[in-house]
């Protein structure tokens, strides 16, 4: 029989608010997205100079992953290859594609071009944490929790991974939403069963 997997932490960033697990962790109403992301970065006292050069999709995903992992997750419990990242969104990297497209009239910038791929946010999270395991970026019309759960369960149940960050990170201009789940094989007091129903409930609450 296949062992069950558990959601050990969650983080949602949506509607000017950061939620860590069930708690409202930060709020900054009325700022535009770039200012909001910077204010969250400052609020949590992160120090990571690479943050400033990221596009908004990577900033949003990177922030959500930092907040997701910051309290009680120790990556040293796992080998780098045992931790993976499986993400999805509906707008791919279009937010930054529009910005890159604008530079075509002038001089195209390699530092903007590199963010014209949705999986760069996965690369940023992997670089930050030295995660070297399986990863994938899927494009979905809307959050398909069942599909993500199936992909992540395959990776965990076949011992390809021992822990996985998964969820949704989407940005298009001022519209944005991130909901990340940390999925592990161990059950802790606050753990939730890793299921499409629980993912959807948390995603929709945000």
């Amino acid at each position: 029989m296949i062992a069950e997997n558990y959601i050990t932490n969650t983080c949602s960033i949506f509607n000017d608010t950061v939620h860590k697990n069930d708690l409202n962790a930060f709020e900054n109403k009325g700022a535009d997205l770039s200012a909001f992301l910077l204010s969250a970065y400052q609020h949590f006292q992160f120090h990571y100079p690479k943050f400033y050069k990221m596009d908004n999709l990577s900033k949003l995903g990177w922030l959500a992953s930092e907040i997701l992992l910051k309290d009680d997750f120790s990556k040293y419990n796992y080998q780098p290859e045992e931790i993976g990242v499986v993400l999805a969104n509906s707008n791919s990297s279009l937010d930054n594609d529009l910005k890159y497209s604008d530079t075509l009239k002038d001089i195209p910038s390699p530092s903007v071009f590199v963010y014209t791929l949705p999986n760069i946010v996965i690369g940023e999270i992997c670089i930050r944490n030295n995660f070297k395991g399986e990863h994938a970026f899927f494009i979905q019309e809307s959050f398909n929790a069942g599909f993500i759960a199936q992909q992540v369960n395959y990776l965990l149940d076949n011992n390809i991974l021992q822990a996985c960050i998964c969820g949704w990170v989407d940005v298009l201009e001022q519209h944005y939403k991130a909901t990340l789940f940390l999925v592990e094989k161990k059950k802790e007091e606050k753990s939730l069963l890793f299921s499409a129903e629980n993912m959807e409930r948390i995603f929709n609450k945000a």
Partner: peptide
């Protein structure tokens, strides 16, 4: 099949190829 990440650089490949 399998997938891995270099965790090194967003636009340059791994220095070692280990991944």
């Amino acid at each position: 099949g399998a997938v891995s990440n270099d965790a090194n650089h967003i636009s340059g490949p791994s220095r070692t190829g280990e991944e």
